[in-house]
Design a binder for these strands. Sequence first.
DNA 1: ACAGAATCAAATTAT
DNA 2: TTGATTCTGT
Length: 670
Amino acid sequence: MNPAQQQAVRYLDGPSLVLAGAGSGKTRVITSKISYLVGQCGYEPKSVFAVTFTNKAASEMRERLIKMLGAERVLELNISTFHSLGVRMLREESKAAGLKTGFSVMDAQDCFGLIQSLVASTDKARLKAIQQQISLWKNALLDPDAATHSAQNAMMMDAARVYHSYQTSLRAYQAVDFDDLIMLPCQLLADNEDVREKWQNRIRHLLIDEYQDTNACQYELMRHLTGVRAMFTAVGDDDQAIYGWRGATMQNLARLQDDYPVLKLIKLEQNYRSTQTILAAANHLITRNPKLFPKQLWSDLGTGEAISVSRMDGELEQAQAVAIRLSAARTEKRATWKDFAVLYRSNQQARAMEQALRDLRIPYTVSGGQSFFDKAEVRDILAYLRLVANEQDDPAFIRAATTPRRGIGQATLQALGEYAAKRHISMFAAACEQGAQAAINPKQLQALQTFVGFLQRYAMRASQPASREHVATLLDELMAAINYEHYLYDVSSDDRAARMRWQTVLELLDWLKSRATESNWSLSELVQHVALITMLERQGEQSPDAVTLSTLHAAKGLEFPHVYLIGVEEGLLPHLGRESDEDSLAGGPERIEEERRLMYVGITRAQRSLHLTWCARRRRGGQDQACEISRFVAEMGLEQQPAVADPGASLTPKGRLDMLKAMLLKPGAS
DNA sequence: ACAGAATCAAATTAT
DNA sequence: TTGATTCTGT
């Protein structure tokens, strides 16, 4: 380790902020520090807490530590995402927080549904704006009343009103949303001295990864958790702050210095990842942004290959050309597929790319984009599990009751809902009451009672102490009882589709079972965590040799020998929403600065070669639209680099076509 | 309650 | 253009 890294690891006299430039060995510092604390300073593993933003980062950290400390001690360490820590705190302190221990965690999609039902509107854009606003308020630690006071225009007043009933509904469902997972523990620590002391005594050192992405709420949580002893290590990079839209604020970096005058500042400026050519371009670009903490990243890995910039006709051509170049480069550089990544600004850009890669039989994995847990069949099963853990979860009740179809429909649910609202009870509870049953037709009532009866018996058994077989058996029994496989064959248009969907379900069940075994969680504990888990985590399990497709956001923290950054166009990479000067287009320059940092993140993912492509036209809406190259390309100062050395770029159109044909005729080429 | 037909909006980024 | 959602008839 270099002196700065060593200093960051060894410093234990108080709070410290490690400004870790891209590729400067940030993860290495965090894991080394944990290992140092436990291995050499005699800290108990359970007194060391590390928080990250993604499950993937957490498990990567855990994996690295297993090699340093051994599996047993790592098991005791508290390494988790902010949100998982929130779940754990709320679960442990459920009484003080006024929640039942089996509370539900609703994901963004569920919450959108809730807002939709509260507003009774079909305007999707408006609903989304309201959801976003509520989220921002929560991230800023504003409750509904405070939000109402701070509302500046009609739209915000409107959102504040929804916020009120939204919170009431969540409370009634015994459910929390993602933002609550930070906000509620934070409020709990602020208001409850016993709880605060308990946690502060438990945590002897707190390490925070990606500190620049914390929001006001997370900052407060950190302050409360560390207390006056303030033993923490925050690690971050202001040039990689790309989550402003989610409430993250770089002011948290500056605030740290104000709130902790003794704060030790350590800069990691040596880059171990990229060639000087790539780093120079990245540095050149980012100097356009105002600096909070000036730092000078350098590398001694040599000049390397020049950065290529290619104009493509359209999205399709871009995808095909990149696929071909990838293929050529793999052969020429004697590289493997996993050495390559294709990065883009928005998920939709993956489509054309996937098609082109499939055509050439190039293996790939798509990271980011939550496909798995967004699939209907997965959400169906999870609705049952959520309901089992928490019968007050009305959204789960509605979904489970109606899928598979069992004669419970609109009319029945409406009767239940009205009765439940009047009596302030859950729909599940309403279904058990005489008064509500009177309003339902005998035939439907029969179906309803069968459903409710089954669930009650099932929930009874699910609440018994966790044991390995128990969870597995319960899950299999549930599938048999609701006959879900049969249902899939019923609703799918063809058997092939049904088989694939059932496969997805089996994957989910396997995953749940293995997870229960690993962590010894009960079914309800398991379900609370599922909402927080994304597809990303599963990537570690299987590591086939495949090209990575990823959004720029999801690519942060990753690195690849060869990176293709596609769609580098005005309007897309500096992404501009609608340019019509609408209401909340505040923060003009800040918007473009964040986009610039996004570009910076993309560039700095590359170790040895970087290739930029942009499309001269792009289908938008229904019609073709002319596009211009991104302003960021000019800001990279590429004029100074040697002539383009990428073999694919020098191919004539005819040469490209021949190459494409050759690959199509030879399916086993990959 | 449900299946097929007509209509309509679409494009950030994600725990 | 698609893909998803809403409407309509049985």
